[in-house]
Design a protein around this nucleic acid. Structure first.
Lengths: 401, 401
DNA sequence: CTTATTAAGTCAATTGTCTTGACTTATTAC
DNA sequence: GTAATAAGTCAAGACAATTGACTTAATAAG
């Protein structure tokens, strides 16, 4: 009667899945290539002109694309290019960091329209939850004041915070994020905002941002090495962010390095946390960012030793990433001060020989990405936009909603 | 006139894509769960009973599934389970290794029906190509002698050989595979057999085999650490083998380890090549495999030191893999003698603490996979089967054929 | 033993989405 | 001025999943 081992199977699909995918493909094509005519879209997507026409018409009705002036380009009827309408959709992004929380509102093309920041009191979620919810609500209403219809076009709230997720705290977590991990954050935010809420770690968010508006734009295989308080990698594989079985893929900071006869997590050697320790600085100091920027810019000796050591570790990490993932490019980004990231990139070169050194490369092996305190919040917001509009396998399937 | 930067876009899909996907989903469900009724399939795939009926009927006509005796399981009409028909499809797998080449014929469910082996003369492709082609032809005709209609049901020829691919040889490649890399192998085999030919590296092939019939069966996130002449990882991510931008993902053997003040590729420390060197053995010796098996079984001191050192490196590798990929499980497999693999697994434990240590785990963090000289050839054959019958994103799209 | 209930599976009509092929429109090349 | 070329539309058609009623075959309940 009750044999019931559950049956595992992938979901099937139907007409709606087909249609949804084709809509996403159009949006993706316009995002990558800029404005395109219906004929261009048909050629690029392998769909018929008629199908493209139908979908474009529908997207235009939905306010997601709009036509531009016709362009003559040789013989034949002039083509009418269509472009993405930035105001076609919005998302809120929320970054929760150790001492600060940031929220942004972005549009369909990834422009930041509203940004707001707040300090996080040391009490953890018990006092911090209200701060966060207020911040989100504030950004949301500022967005509504700037653009009409933003509420109906809000596709979700993306949250980014340091991972890993779902791990039993070791008790000696030096970064105090453990309490946040245990707090039912997503449920609280869902209840408090009524929005679709998604979570990713900060490196994944940075990668999502790079893919939407940065160095990974249009790439299907790219790894973002994110240097923040910790260090992590955002994995873009087959054109999608890879999350792993439990959402913890890319937590490279915990990779072990052997040096001086002992093994140390990468994170303890190359991350802002390690720099703060090296400088005996207080991470909660609001002027620290500017101070480090200044030190890096001046090439202050107090920071040079750390840069050299961190660059060596990053050079190793990049080699490892190239070896394991075989990406089109590696992108170095972070919440670190810009000058520091620039110094790091300079100090990393030249890279180790690797399988990435191939004839016919068009992209550099290592590229600088965003180094902006707001990039993680932007990536957090890019999450819901991507989920709603980018083509991906799960979006075709029946059980995906 | 000629503005022509090429337009990049993902392919759209249509009814055929939908239908093809749903067929694959059925086959996948039967492969993972064993025989299932139409009603079971409908529930598991989210498709309607009617749709499932239509597809099953078609698959039965095509000889890919067949009904079993009806089973009564409580109230209601008895259900008729359907199972995969092993003889529904076949593929040839070819492994090209340094001194030997192996070919197998497998059926839809991954059973090996024919196997053949040949030594590879030292001359490289110039003399080896004929040996290989003859081996494949021999296996193919033996298959045809065993089962009728095998030729019409042959979905392809999968080739596995050591990677990485497409790299400019450094000239001092100690493994002599470079000449093979430059040889137009796929073209030669396509021309010589008329079959669809696909290529993967040996670790990827091992992972493909594990996924079809081994420890990764039914898993969507698993990493196979493959210890052979070199060492590599086969990456199963989101239910598919991940190849990277250039087909070289998982070449972990080139990852650098720091020890004794210098950096060494993992491959030089933990691989059969390093063991051969440790033992001053000749890799071309046909009795070497059995000899090492014997040494490992007896716990011979000449091999124990190597085992301890290699186990330490593998322990580190497993930690790294868990950290970076967040898989459901890690599988240790190889073309090494079984006793050696068993000794390695024993010597690896206990594993390092990692994010993989979570409550509610059901799978072991590390599992033994196949350690069989034929597993790579099997995986090579599993490649075409998987390409033809497993659900994956590319199979839905219009440009995939 | 009879009847109700439950579940598997089928039938026939319908719906949704892409495709096809002919057609219209607008422009440049000769 | 005419032919060639390309963008885009129209209307009918094809394909594959869906829907809801129906049939079949078993067990459970009275």
């Amino acid at each position: 009667m009750n044999d019931s081992r559950p049956i595992r199977a992938k979901s099937g699909t139907n007409h709606e899945g087909t249609s949804a995918h084709n809509r996403r493909v159009m949006i993706d094509a316009l995002r990558i290539n800029g404005a395109l005519s219906r004929a261009d879209l048909a050629r690029a997507t392998w769909l018929t002109k008629q199908t493209v026409s139908n979908i474009i018409e529908e997207l235009e009705r939905d306010g997601l694309v709009s036509s531009q002036e016709a362009v003559r380009k040789g013989r034949g009827q002039p083509s009418t290019p269509y472009r993405l309408v930035p105001e076609g959709a919005f998302a809120i992004g929320l970054q929760i960091d150790r001492h600060v929380t940031r929220a942004v509102a972005v549009d369909l093309v990834g422009s930041v329209l509203v940004r707001a920041e707040a300090g996080l009191p040391p009490g953890g979620p018990s006092t911090g939850a209200k701060v966060i919810l207020d911040l989100v609500t504030g950004v949301r209403s500022k967005l509504a004041a700037i653009v009409q219809q933003s509420e109906t076009r809000l596709v979700g709230l993306g949250v980014a915070m340091p991972g890993p997720f779902g791990i039993d705290g070791s008790g000696d977590d030096p970064w105090m994020m453990e309490a946040w991990q245990k707090f039912p954050l997503l449920e609280t935010l869902t209840a408090g905002t009524g929005l679709d809420v998604g979570l990713q770690n900060d490196a994944a968010a940075a990668a999502t941002a790079e893919r939407m508006v940065g160095a990974a734009h249009g790439l299907d295989h790219a790894i973002c090495l994110f240097v923040g308080y910790g260090i992590g990698a955002g994995l873009i594989l087959n054109g999608e962010l890879y999350r792993g079985a439990n959402g913890n893929a890319g937590e490279i900071g915990m990779a072990l390095l052997f040096a001086d006869g002992k093994s140390t997590p990468l994170e303890h050697r190359a991350s802002l946390a390690s720099l703060y320790q090296h400088l005996s600085a207080d991470p909660a100091d609001p002027d620290l960012h500017a101070h480090i920027d200044d030190l890096a810019l001046r090439g202050d000796p107090s920071i040079e030793a750390w840069i050299e050591a961190a660059a060596a570790d990053l050079r190793w990490s990049i080699h490892l990433i190239e070896t394991i993932f075989d990406p089109q490019t590696v992108i170095l980004c972070g919440s670190a001060p810009v000058a520091l990231v620039n110094r790091l990139i300079a100090a990393i070169g030249p890279l180790q020989p690797s399988t990435a050194e191939r004839r016919g490369r068009t992209l550099p092996r290592l590229q600088p990405g965003m180094a902006d305190p707001w990039s993680v919040a932007l990536g957090a917001a890019a999450g819901p936009i991507s989920r709603a509009f980018d083509p991906h396998f799960a979006a075709i399937l029946k059980d995906s909603r």
